[in-house]
Computed example of a mutant assay.
Amino acid sequence: MLTLTETASTVVKSIIDRDPNSTDGALRIAPGANERDFSIAVVSAPEPGDELVESHGARVFLEPTASAALGDKTLDAEVAETGAVSFALVNQG
């Protein structure tokens, strides 16, 4: 199952908190344009079949294909001095 670092959890919570329409929201990860890309969006509810991952108060919904692809990964995040956020996936140790 996908895990989140503490930094990623903090960033996910911060992103969700900035969305006024998402009081019980989560970050949703779904397949992107190709098999190595993923899209993310703030959503208020999961889609049918989504898996819920909770870590340090952060909630992430994984689309079934994304869940299978990311099952052995850890989501990490980095915030640049400009405030830009980048996510990285690393293999679980």
Rank of each mutant, 00 (worst) to 15 (best):
A66V: 02
L52T: 13
A58Q: 00
N21V: 06
R28Y: 01
D76G: 15
G25Y: 11
N34F: 12
T82P: 14
G32T: 00
D17P: 02
R36F: 09
D76M: 08
D50M: 07
G83H: 05
A68V: 04
A80G: 15
L4V: 11
A41W: 11
A8W: 04
K13C: 12
S14G: 13
L52R: 10
E63T: 05
A58C: 02
A68K: 13
G32Q: 02
T65A: 12
V42Q: 14
L89V: 04
E51W: 03
F87I: 03
A41N: 12
V90G: 05
E81V: 09
A58H: 01
S39R: 01
V42R: 14
I16P: 01
L52W: 02
F87E: 10
N34K: 09
L75W: 01
G83V: 05
V60M: 06
E81L: 12
I16T: 11
E6F: 04
S14D: 13
T82H: 06
V60W: 06
A66G: 00
A41C: 13
A41E: 15
A8E: 05
A88S: 11
N34L: 14
G49Y: 00
P31Y: 01
E78L: 14
S22Q: 09
T7M: 14
T7P: 12
F38E: 03
S39H: 02
I15L: 15
N34A: 12
S39A: 02
S67P: 00
D19H: 09
G32E: 02
E47I: 00
D17Q: 12
S9D: 04
L4D: 01
D19M: 09
D50W: 08
A41K: 14
E81Y: 00
A68Y: 01
D76C: 10
E35L: 09
I40F: 08
A45P: 00
L75E: 04
V12F: 13
E54G: 02
I15T: 07
I29A: 01
K73A: 10
Q92G: 03
S55A: 11
D37G: 08
V42M: 13
A30R: 01
A58S: 02
A84G: 15
I15Q: 08
V85M: 09
Q92L: 04
V43I: 13
E6G: 15
M1C: 01
E47Y: 03
P48E: 13
I15G: 02
R59W: 08
S44A: 15
G57V: 02
G93W: 00
G83A: 10
V79E: 14
F87V: 03
A84K: 15
A88R: 10
D72G: 06
E78M: 13
E81F: 05
E63A: 07
E78F: 15
D37A: 11
A26C: 08
V79L: 15
